[in-house]
Amino acid sequence: MKAIEQVPKTALDVFRLLPEGTLCEVIDNVLYMSPAPKYMHQNLLFLLAKRIDNYLEQTAKGQVIISPFDVYFENLLSAVQPDLLVLLNESKDILKNDGYIHGAPDLVIEVLSADKKRDTVQKKNLYEKAGVKEYFVVEPETREMTAWVLTDGTYQLQYTQVGLFKSALLSFEFEF
């Protein structure tokens, strides 16, 4: 265990002191802890990641990263662990030498869990402010996917549909 040399001033400072792999996020300088995801959540996450990753590998457009993985928005006093993110080749410069992303991934998918408000309101607002181009949330039990696209700095609802992933950014869609 490392000694704390300086008293943390923000929730983001506290977050940086936590052990690697801690299921925790900071949104607008508020620290949120989470339990481990349930089976249905992880099963759906794996399915989505596999399909999108296969496509990105075939097209050589970018890569998929799944949680737990830290994404920092220092200017917004936030650090989150999106369930799935896509980093296109032209955005790879936000993957820094510390091994984390500092800035907005191109696309984010959150598989909803018990605290739906965090994903559908707080994280949606954060991703919009940060500049994430496409944001998706999916309900694991019904497989209802809702998609927003960033247009002129504001999210516009693209669709809500059961079992459909459709990304204009990736030029890719599939049913699940």
Results as ranks from 00 to 15, higher is better:
residue 47 L to A: 14
residue 71 V to F: 05
residue 86 V to T: 06
residue 68 P to D: 10
residue 90 E to P: 01
residue 50 K to W: 15
residue 70 D to F: 02
residue 59 T to K: 06
residue 49 A to R: 01
residue 89 N to E: 10
residue 72 Y to L: 02
residue 63 Q to R: 14
residue 55 Y to K: 10
residue 55 Y to M: 08
residue 78 S to M: 12
residue 64 V to R: 10
residue 50 K to F: 15
residue 84 L to Y: 08
residue 67 S to F: 01
residue 73 F to I: 06
residue 83 D to K: 05
residue 68 P to N: 06
residue 81 Q to Y: 00
residue 81 Q to G: 03
residue 86 V to K: 03
residue 76 L to N: 06
residue 77 L to S: 15
residue 67 S to H: 01
residue 90 E to W: 03
residue 67 S to T: 07
residue 80 V to G: 01
residue 62 G to H: 07
residue 80 V to E: 00
residue 77 L to A: 15
residue 75 N to T: 14
residue 55 Y to I: 01
residue 60 A to G: 11
residue 79 A to Q: 10
residue 76 L to C: 03
residue 80 V to R: 07
residue 55 Y to C: 07
residue 78 S to V: 11
residue 83 D to T: 00
residue 70 D to Q: 03
residue 90 E to H: 13
residue 64 V to L: 09
residue 72 Y to R: 05
residue 74 E to R: 08
residue 77 L to Q: 15
residue 63 Q to Y: 08
residue 56 L to G: 10
residue 78 S to Y: 12
residue 60 A to Q: 14
residue 76 L to Y: 13
residue 73 F to L: 11
residue 57 E to Y: 14
residue 89 N to Q: 04
residue 75 N to F: 08
residue 51 R to K: 15
residue 60 A to R: 13
residue 57 E to H: 08
residue 58 Q to L: 13
residue 71 V to G: 06
residue 73 F to N: 08
residue 64 V to K: 05
residue 67 S to L: 00
